[in-house]
């Protein structure tokens, strides 16, 4: 059973994030809200050309 996920190509890092997500979702209301607020990430990307920032592109957040 141990490392069954590794054979399916899941890294330990991925294992950790899945386990952490499952734990956060299992918490009682108050702690869960605090934990989920903390765990969210958003990603925005923009290029710099000629010393100017080009349009920012939103790449989504960790919930998606």
């Amino acid at each position: 059973m141990a490392f069954a996920w590794k054979q399916a190509g899941v890294s330990y890092n991925k294992y950790l994030s899945i386990a952490a997500q499952a734990i956060r979702k299992s918490l009682k209301e108050q702690a869960r809200v605090a934990a989920e607020r903390r765990s969210g990430n958003e990603l925005k990307v923009s290029r710099w050309e000629n010393g100017k920032q080009q349009e920012a592109k939103y790449l989504g957040n960790s919930e998606q």
Binding site: M1, A4, W5, A8, G9, V10, K14, Y15, I18, A19, A22, I23, S26
Partner: peptide
């Protein structure tokens, strides 16, 4: 296979 592997991790943890 990926989805199943991830779900199995969740099952184990839970």
């Amino acid at each position: 296979e990926q989805d199943i592997a991830e779900a199995k991790i969740e099952v184990e943890v839970l």
